[in-house]
Design a protein around this nucleic acid. Sequence first.
DNA 1: GCCAACGTTGGC
DNA 2: GCCAACGTTGGC
Length: 281
Amino acid sequence: MRRSNRIASKATDLPPPLAAHATKRSIGTNGGDGGESDAVGLGSSPKRSKQVKQDHAVIAKKETQKELAGASASTAAAGTTTAEPIIVKAKGKTKKDPPASQLDDRKEGETKIWLMKAEPDSRVVKGKDVKFSIDDLAAMPNGTSPWDGVRNHEAKNIMRYRMKVGDTVLFYHSNTKTPGIAGIAEVAKEAYPDYSAFDPKHPYYDEKSDKDDPRWYMVDVKFKRKLKRLLSLKELQEYKDKELKNMPLLNRGRLSVQPVHQSDLDFILELEQRPAADELS
DNA sequence: GCCAACGTTGGC
DNA sequence: GCCAACGTTGGC
């Protein structure tokens, strides 16, 4: 149900040590997105043969190209340091592990912050409404929902490799009249295969993903609270070159799952306490 | 591996 | 509905 955006490449900052990276979009509420376009949309095509093996190495290998490409691009853009990829032996072959920038770099006990985009307005894709707002999340059992539908490798890699239970998530409303940050959630379950990619009838079906070799992953997100007021993209953009100059949201608008610096979260929470501009006199 | 054509996202 | 900014695809 959620979608994300894509990313552009630009620098920005990412959470402290590493850069962010994966980006996929999610779909969510809308439709669109799936990262791979056709995969998502069309029905069925022959499935790709499955591979029998699926150890980490193999899986990683398959994902490699696109994912890693995206990751490194963003990493570079972010100006972060990148460690050399680790070469691992796998079934006699070598494959690259995800760049260090994709791996969890957090210190013990540290929590990170992410921004995830969903579409709060109804939008029908392949017969299903992909709408997903902060209120929809709050209404889920236990306030928890899988963040399925992300079809962008950079966004996916962030979910797959970097999000951990307890991390803070800024819930962003996109593709709506007043886009902006609507609430706060947290990561409730770490990455696992996005089953929506396996269902031919699902809006975000991807014929290239199968259960023996998942191409897309998702995390579960749990509602924490709505912001006292929506912090609109327009308002956030006022700080684009100042307090929020590091937010990918403001210069890599299409990335649907992205890192947020602690300093940006601090500023956002401060902004939340200020009266809305239209309430000022 | 380059790059033109095409498709999408998503703000406006 | 437009279109800028990207990403992906596929020919070569």
